[in-house]
């Protein structure tokens, strides 16, 4: 999908290279997690996918559309939706249904179709019955689901979550993650998820690790997250089961394989007992 992408932010006194020759490809229907520490360039990278940032060098096509071509911008933004970290920044209206309809109206969707699409989007995120509520009076997880519904109403092929769970409490995070899984399984959407919660990447198809504007490694969650050395170089902390595995190993207790989930860890320890 993208080749050799570089991007620099310009300042008064110079520029900072945020992306340095990144190659990335995401297949149709894939769930890809992009992990990296704060400031590593992960948000910069995905903001190219729907032309929020203009490509400075390299090549990138999303859903078959060349992002460098200005003519494609509207179509790109419809096909590739984005949910940000702080849902409050994404609301434009005083009622949930109007907020979700906002994008559709901008794309001149015929009036008769709008309410059906809004309802469908709300159903997808499990927020039916909230049509008339004010988005600002909802809980964090509910707000984020409404923001997501606004994106889904556009019927995009690709959805990008830019640390969409970072500000939520555990209950809210669980809500969003289960919606993401459902989108992948039932709606066959392509999902790109940016996060630094390694636990969230466990159920991805593929993981990219970004460090200082470069791709450090990519592979399955198991390949990436159980590699302590690699996690350390990326500036991330492995999931708890992986940490337990390595600490036990250091004490001379070797489990048969490195577990990725709590269940696997429990299984391995019981086997050893």
């Amino acid at each position: 999908m993208g080749k050799n992408i570089s991007y620099s932010y310009m300042y008064d006194g110079g520029f900072a290279l945020a992306l340095d020759g990144v190659d990335i490809s995401v297949g149709e229907g894939e769930l890809v997690a992009v992990l990296g520490h704060n400031g590593c360039g992960k948000s910069t990278l995905v903001k190219h996918f729907n032309a929020l940032l203009q490509l400075q060098s390299g090549e990138l096509s999303v859903a078959g559309l060349n992002v460098a071509d200005q003519k494609n911008v509207w179509e790109l933004r419809r096909r590739c939706g984005m949910v940000f970290q702080n849902p409050d920044n994404q609301f434009v209206s005083s009622s949930v249904e109007e907020d979700i309809a906002f994008g559709l109206e901008n794309y001149e969707t015929p009036r008769g179709e709008i309410s059906g699409k809004v309802r469908k989007a709300l159903r997808l995120v499990g927020m039916e019955g909230f049509e008339k509520r004010s988005p600002h009076m909802l809980s964090g997880g509910q707000k984020q689901r409404v923001a997501l519904a606004g994106v889904l109403a556009m019927e995009p092929d690709i959805i990008i979550f830019d640390e969409a769970t970072a500000m939520l409490d555990p209950a809210g995070r669980g809500e969003i993650l289960s919606v993401i899984r459902r989108l992948r399984e039932q709606e066959r959407k392509t999902v790109v998820m940016i996060s630094h919660y390694v636990e969230e990447a466990v159920f991805a198809d593929r993981v990219y690790l970004i460090h200082d504007g470069r791709i450090l490694a990519s592979g399955t969650p198991r390949e990436m997250l159980t590699d302590e050395e690699l996690m350390k170089r990326t500036g991330l902390i492995p999931p708890v089961p992986v940490r337990v595995y390595y600490e036990l190993k250091a004490a001379g207790l070797e489990l048969q394989k490195c577990p990725l989930t709590n269940e696997e860890l429990v299984e391995e320890i019981c086997r050893l007992n």
């Binding site: 990296g36 520490h37 704060n38 970290q85 640390e163 970072a166 500000m167 630094h196 919660y197 390694v198 500036g235 991330l236 902390i237």
Partner: peptide, 11 residues
């Protein structure tokens, strides 16, 4: 108030 929300693990 929620100081670590949004910080990466090492942060």
């Amino acid at each position: 108030d929620e100081p670590i929300a949004g910080l990466d693990p090492l942060g």
